[in-house]
Structure formats: C-alpha cells, structure tokens
Design a protein around this nucleic acid. Structure first.
Lengths: 165, 165
DNA sequence: GTCGATGCAAAGAATTTGCAGGACC
DNA sequence: GGTCCTGCAAATTCTTTGCATCGAC
C-alpha cells in the first residue's frame, strides 16, 4: 500500500477544449501564440512558471514572447481556467484548473528539491467547507500548501537507515 | 455564538523577548536598527510587508534601511520567529510566529478590500495532521489561505448597490 | 580592535506596460 | 478593415547584494 498517491491523470484535452470555448465566449480571439500557450498548459504534468512555458514553446519551435505568456495566464486566471500557485520567493507557478470542485487538489512542496506534488483529501476539504460556514466570510476559494520533504529527499537524508513509517 | 471569532491578542512583549533571546543565542548582535524592526513586528496587529515596516519606522523617526528590514526578516524567518505570507502578486507579508503549534492560525484574504484576517480551527488542523501521516512526505509546515469577501465587503455589496469599484 | 551590522545604491529577478506592426473575424 | 493580439524592449516592483563605514561585544 502507500503506493501511488498521485491524482488520476487530468483530462488534458478536455481542459483544452473547455478553455478554448471559454475564451471564445468571453470575446477573445484564437491566435496561434495563445493556442500554443494553452496547449503547453494542457499538456503539463506539473505546475509551470511563465518562464517554463515560454522555454517549452521555444524548444518546440513555437516561440512566444513572455509578455504573451503572462497576458494569457492572466486571462486564464480571470476565467478560473488556471490556478496560480505562489512559491515563496520564486516565480509563481500555474496549473490548469478544473471546473468547480471537480478534482480539487492542493500541493506539497519539498523544500529540499523544490518538487511540487499534488494531493487531494476529502476530510481536508470537508474541514475547510465547514470553516466557510462557521466564519462570517464568504469563502470562495482556498489554497493549502504543505511544506516538507518528499519521500526521495527524506529517504536520502536518512541515508542508509530505511524506516518506513 | 459566532461573535468574537478573533484570536486573543498576541503576547507582543513575550514574542519580542523570545525573539531577542533567540537572536542572541544564535550569535547575532543586538543593534538598534534590528531592535526597531523587532519592535515593529511585535507591535503589529496585522501582517506587514517589508515596506510597511520601513515606513512605520520612518514615521516614528527611527529610519531603518529596507535592506536591513529584509535582512532581519530573513534572519527571523530562518529562526522560525516570523512567518511569511505570500500574497498573490503583491509583496510578501510577515507576522510574528509563536512557538510550535501554539496559537497556530491561518488567514482569510478579502479580495475586495485586501484585508487579511487570521482565524484558527482545530478540525482543520486535525485534518492536516492526519494528512501528514497519510502522505509519504514529512510535512513540517503548512499554509492555508481562504479567499473571499470579508463581512463588511459582502454586506455592503448586498446591502447597497455596487457603485464605485 | 574585530567582525558583524547598516545604509546606500546598484544589481537582479519577476512581471507589466507602451507601442508599432501583424493577424483574426 | 477594424480591432484585438503580439513581440520587443523599456519600465515597474520587490528583493538581494556589494561595499565602505559604523558600532556592539
């Protein structure tokens, strides 16, 4: 047990289609650079920074200016199609957002290797939901970030002694 | 009975003393500028940015360079005496951190007025703690940010019409 | 007296913005 | 063909760093 705690692979194409439709309905044009950014986001397996996206596109011969990447991300964030993840100090990361609470998840950040791992947990969601009711605030979004060491890092730090917990 | 949901006023002096001792024990000198930054942090009622601290000190005639403010905050963060709060886009905010889990809390950010309100909730903490066990990661810290409208903003939005923005 | 701490200003990094030309509808 | 969009580079903002000087221990 304690095996793959990863989240079922996100429906990339579905997201892409939804994003394209949402942009169109919001009155935005479907340009090639914008489409390239959308595809890079849809294709990603992990959270990406604006620079990551620009680099990736440059590598695949579809150069897109950073400004366009930022402008597209801003647009998508406004339409709740991407979710921004603030990394202490470093540049912000972005990931495709799924509709509503569907597939809602949060992140673990390893402060040794920097890796970001998504996870989901119903009891956490329930606790937050209850909180929303309890507090006067209208809560419409929440971020949870757990920081610590990922399995690889803590394992290698422990060195030889391998004690599963 | 959901009236005072605020957190009991933090023991400012206690924090200040603890911070001074911790710095000294870590081999740092007690300079006047650093002391001024410490006091500003201890005195704060809400989260402050580095610029806020510098401004506040300038107002109270104890000018301290921003560089010193940042350096002090970095020092304090390393000693777990302050907690950094990443604000999407805007500059990071800092607040005094209390020892261990003592008085542990999180924040609500109003996306209308920007106000940051602390809250604490045991069931949330328990859920996160359980999560730490469930996930392979060693979790040693967590941040939770709820975003929404504070009571004032949602009230005024509902009550009156939505004039100016 | 030594070495850490400070302030200033320059350097860096991340993100935004102005503008002229290009592309979509 | 009118706009919206793009790329580039300059501008902003936040934070860090180099360096000569100052001050705590």
């Amino acid at each position: 047990m304690a095996s793959k705690r990863s989240i079922p692979s996100p429906p990339a194409d579905e997201w892409l289609e939804r994003a394209e439709i949402a942009l169109q309905r919001a009155g935005h044009r479907a340009s090639a650079p914008r489409a390239a950014v959308l595809e890079a986001i849809a294709r990603q397996q992990c959270v990406l920074s604006a620079a990551d996206i620009a680099d990736e596109l440059r590598a695949s011969k579809r150069r897109v200016g950073v400004a366009t990447v930022y402008r597209t991300l801003e647009l998508l964030e406004g339409l709740k199609l991407v979710q921004r993840l603030d990394m202490s100090g470093a540049s912000a990361r972005f990931e495709p957002a799924l509709p509503d609470g569907e597939h809602h998840h949060h992140h673990l950040v390893c402060h040794e290797c920097g890796r970001v791992t998504p996870f989901e947990d119903d009891s956490l969601e329930r606790a937050i939901h209850r909180l929303g009711d309890k507090l006067d605030h209208e809560v419409d979004h929440h971020d949870v970030i757990l920081r610590g060491s990922c399995p690889e890092c803590s394992r290698s730090r422990r060195g030889k002694s391998q004690s599963r917990r």
